[in-house]
Each structure stands twice: as structure tokens, then as C-alpha cells.
């Protein structure tokens, strides 16, 4: 079932984003910033974890989950240590994604050539 919900929820988020892009004429950069902030704000209501539980990758894949992970890790860091934990913990959950993107981007840039 989670496969179906992953497809439906992920698709729905993309559909809403596409509507924002076409109706409000947003550029990709603006769109992505909007969704990251949205994911971050949802964490305030502790909603995002519940969404991940039922939609799986459908909630993990959209860039909103990036905002959620950053916020979640910052709060965890602050709770577990002290206020400084907001800064020390913030990239805990997202470091894998960023590191992987840097690694693969560099590798591909060395090996491939843009096709225009």
C-alpha cells in the first residue's frame, strides 16, 4: 500500500508545484525555496514525520523533506545538548544527500561533456 501512497502523494506535491509554476509564473529557484520553507514550517506542527510514515518515499523525495530534515536535526541538536546544538546538529540528517551530490556532480563533470 505504501507504494501506492508514495506514488499518489509524491505526484500530488509535484502537481501542486507545477500549478504554482504555471499560474504564478515562478522560476524553478523560487519554487524550490518555497517548498523547502514549507517542509521546514510543517516540522513545527510535527506533521512531516506522520506524512513520511504513511507515504514513505512520496514524502522523502520532495525537496520539502530537506527543509524538514534540517529543522528536525537542528531541534534534536538543541534538545540533546544546548542552544548551540541548533547549529552543531543542523546538517546531521542531510549531510549524506549533500555529500553524495557533491561527489557525483564532480565525478560526472570530470568524465562527461555537456551536450548543449
Amino acid at each position: 500500500m505504501i507504494f501506492l501512497y508514495a506514488f499518489l502523494f509524491g505526484g500530488l506535491v509535484c502537481l501542486l508545484a507545477q500549478l504554482c509554476m504555471d499560474i504564478f509564473k515562478l522560476l524553478p529557484a523560487q519554487l524550490v525555496v518555497l517548498f523547502v520553507v514549507l517542509g521546514s514550517v510543517l516540522e513545527a506542527f510535527q506533521l512531516y514525520d506522520k506524512i513520511i510514515a504513511f507515504a514513505g518515499a512520496g514524502a522523502l523525495m520532495p525537496i520539502a523533506s530537506f527543509g524538514h530534515s534540517l529543522t528536525h536535526a537542528a531541534v534534536e541538536g538543541a534538545m540533546n545538548t544546548d542552544y548551540l546544538g541548533l547549529f552543531t546538529g543542523i546538517f546531521d540528517l542531510t549531510s549524506t544527500g549533500i555529500a553524495a551530490a557533491i561527489f557525483f556532480s564532480f565525478l560526472i563533470a570530470l568524465v562527461c561533456k555537456p551536450r548543449g
Binding site: C14, M21, A101, S105
Partner: peptide, 25 residues
């Protein structure tokens, strides 16, 4: 073809980094 369908998932993030790096090669 897909617009937000590929921009919104983490594929958009990865593509933006790889394409920028690749272009400036």
C-alpha cells in the same frame, strides 16, 4: 517534459548541481 515532476524531488537538486558543474568544465 515533466517540469515540477523532476524539479521538486531531490532529482532537481542533484541535477542543478551536476549541470552547473558540468557546464563550467
Amino acid at each position: 517534459f515533466s517540469g515540477a515532476g523532476t524539479i521538486i524531488p531531490i532529482t532537481g537538486f542533484a541535477n542543478s548541481m551536476t549541470s552547473s558543474a558540468l557546464e563550467s568544465k
